[in-house]
């Protein structure tokens, strides 16, 4: 699914669902990671929290996510990962959710607060309906766990540092060490995320062997700043992130 790919995170419904589709289309992305707004996003920093709260208070509903994906799919074949907290999925029913997601055109599910130990049923339903999974791994994830994560995942999403999402000035040494270690253990491609916002971060990580690099909060900042007119900015920013020259 990924090879030297820029993975671009877009929060659904921020500032509205039509613009979300435009933003997804304007991103120069190998993979789009579409974030489902949640009332209590415990793994996210302030930037993404604000985007989620804003979407929800503007009346965003879960069914709008599938609308966005369908609209996007009418115009793009770019791989799409849906990122969610577990409760919305659990609440509507795992099977209902996954059936809807598959038929809308989602390629893989990443559920932030669902470690694999708790995911037997979820993974089974995903497998039954042809949905792929992406699991998180962290710098402190034990080798045995990393092997299971690798086994279950289409690609492994390696969290680059301790803490939550958000822009950081530099990629931590921890990220490079974790990447080096994970490369030895995992057979699947590795994407690195959390705190990445600059071109040099992206290139450094590709050089260090990452198969994908995720930018999230930096994109959300652009939407925060330029609102409905963020399309061009997102296009420029994502193109610049991966340009070698």
């Amino acid at each position: 699914m990924i090879s030297r790919s820029l993975i671009v995170f877009i929060p659904a419904g921020y500032p509205n669902k039509d613009k979300t589709v435009d933003f997804m289309l304007s991103a120069n992305a190998g993979v789009i990671e579409l974030g489902i707004p949640f009332s209590d996003p415990i793994a996210d920093g302030e930037t993404i929290q604000r985007a989620y709260f804003s979407a929800l208070s503007a009346g965003f509903k879960l069914k709008d996510v599938f609308w966005i994906v369908r609209k996007f799919r009418e115009q793009s074949d770019t791989k799409l990962v849906l990122m969610s907290y577990y409760n919305p999925i659990y609440k509507v029913g795992i099977e209902d959710f996954i059936v809807n997601a598959v038929s809308a055109g989602v390629d893989a599910m990443l559920v932030v607060d669902l470690p694999f130990d708790e995911a037997d049923e979820f993974v089974k339903v995903c497998r039954d309906f042809g949905m792929k999974n992406v699991f998180l791994a962290a710098p402190n994830t034990r080798e045995e766990r990393l092997r299971v994560i690798d086994e279950l995942s289409e690609f492994v999403y390696l969290v680059s540092t301790y803490g939550v999402t958000g822009i950081r000035n530099k990629v931590s040494d921890l990220a490079f060490k974790a990447l080096e270690r994970a490369k030895k253990i995992c057979k699947k491609p590795l994407a690195v995320g959390f705190g990445i916002s600059k071109r040099e971060h992206v290139l450094e990580l590709f050089r260090a062997g990452a198969d994908g690099v995720v930018v999230g909060s930096a994109i959300v900042k652009l939407i925060e700043q330029f609102g409905e007119k963020a399309d061009d900015r997102i296009e420029e920013f994502t193109r610049a992130l991966t340009s070698e020259t």
Partner: peptide
């Protein structure tokens, strides 16, 4: 019950 947390908190 259970342990529904991001992977990063599992070791803790």
């Amino acid at each position: 019950g259970g342990r529904y947390v991001p992977e990063i908190l599992i070791p803790a």
